[in-house]
Design a protein around this nucleic acid. Structure first.
Lengths: 246, 246
DNA sequence: CGGCCACTTGAATCTAATCAAGACGCGTGG
DNA sequence: CCACGCGTCTTGATTAGATTCAAGTGGCCG
């Protein structure tokens, strides 16, 4: 692991409050690995031997069934992922692949378990993290069940704008087809729905979104802190794109 | 709390492995309450003051947005619920109401926190429970994103049959409109889809489902241990209807 | 017996998926 | 440097899946 990354990792919700010996001990057993883009890190069904920590790049969690594929989350540094599978010691429910060249810390699940048993602060952090991840998935399920594709898209655009600091304009941080899958629609539908939202306060310029009338878009999205409030909770698997690192 | 229920509660995943003093201490601070059917226990957005444990009856977790409502889970005894909100000390993301007359144990969140800090075994159990709940929601999200309504229904029928011990015939444990909402469809759609599945190995007799050709139905459902495997994981919020009490 | 509610069924509508074709951008290799 | 080829994105036409609106049935409870 590189020294310049250490503070960022130390600052993860998972490690922020643990004792320094615990943290150093864990770091001693992890090793860092670099992956090219589009590489399958693991497949759903695999056995979880490592807690993963994304240090650099971007990783997509997706799920497959019967030939269909759905993006479940996109992660940006610094985030840990697949904590729940490690804790349960049960097969991954999702597959992971890099979207860009990425550096990932691999923390052996065995050592994680040992450290949790030794350090109650770490145990507490794990609980908080898992509770946040759970609530993130509840939000996602609510989003899927209660909103139409159009509403989900409008809400996502507003959330993304907010994540970048309430900017009125931003470029999509992932390919549109990935965003489409994340939002539970086809690329064609996303394209059409984006076009339709031009009547609801946005303008388009290729991959750039310009929020022309935030109030109008907000009305179309029906924002709700009990669905959309990213940021307050777990930054890991909850959002399509958690805030930029740090 | 009634003495005859104690063993069942003691046997909850959450409490099974904790020290007896911890358990007794927790039980001392909880109080039991009885509720009539159709009563709103709490609403989404409320502050979580108690961990709830359903001892008798049935409880439905549902979410509302913009006038729409979706059933997220139905709980049967003995199950704890809303652990995650208690751990995070953040507002409920779902509302809860009784479906039948129900008895519920209310465990003050404050005492739960204290006990977790004192007993590492309890902390470990909470982690396992939360990880399981998270994975249950991941399953639900996969179910929603990857399967059609028809496939979800077929899979649910098979899972329900399995939960009751691989019986070839069973009566629906909840009203059809609730099942419909849980599966993400309207009551009319459920009715039609159920009718359509008569060509896929089931027969209908009012609220009773008869699985005539399990192989055929299984093919229509496309069962997958990474979506449908109830039972192995958290029995709380994961399934429409976790196994019968005990 | 009457009224309410869940459920079913039918018809029309709507949303989103599918199939198909063309435009554009981008990187590679000639 | 340009030309080619690939993959993404867009747009159009059509289809499929599911919702909505409406009417009718049956059961249950007062």
């Amino acid at each position: 692991m590189r020294d310049e990354e250490k503070p960022a990792i130390r600052n993860l919700p998972l490690f922020r409050s643990v004792a320094t010996p615990t943290f150093e001990g864990l770091m001693a057993t992890t090793y860092s690995q670099s992956f090219p883009p589009q590489l399958e890190l693991f497949r759903q069904g695999d056995h979880p031997d490592f807690l993963h920590i994304l240090v650099e790049g971007a990783v997509e969690l997706h799920a497959e069934w019967n030939g269909r594929d759905a993006v479940m989350a996109v992660l940006r540094p610094v985030s840990s992922f697949i904590l729940a599978a490690c804790i349960r010691d049960m097969p991954y429910l999702m597959s992971a692949r890099t979207l860009e060249r990425s550096r990932i810390l691999m923390l052996p699940a065995v050592d994680l378990h040992a450290a949790i048993r030794r350090d109650p602060e770490l145990a507490a952090a794990v609980m908080t993290e898992l509770a946040g991840s759970y609530r993130g998935m509840v939000r996602q399920a609510k989003n899927l069940k209660l909103r139409t594709a159009r509403e989900r898209l409008a809400a996502w655009l507003l959330n993304q704008s907010q994540r970048e600091g309430d900017v009125p304009s931003f470029v999509l941080p992932v390919e549109k087809r990935h965003l489409a899958s994340y939002l539970g629609m086809t690329p064609e539908s996303l394209s059409r729905t984006l076009a339709a939202l031009r009547n609801e306060g946005i303008a388009l310029d290729g991959p750039r979104i310009i929020i022309v009338d935030r109030a109008l878009l907000t009305r179309a999205a029906g924002l709700d802190p009990l669905i959309d409030d990213l940021g307050a909770e777990d930054p890991t698997v909850e959002a399509m794109l958690p805030r930029p690192s740090r």
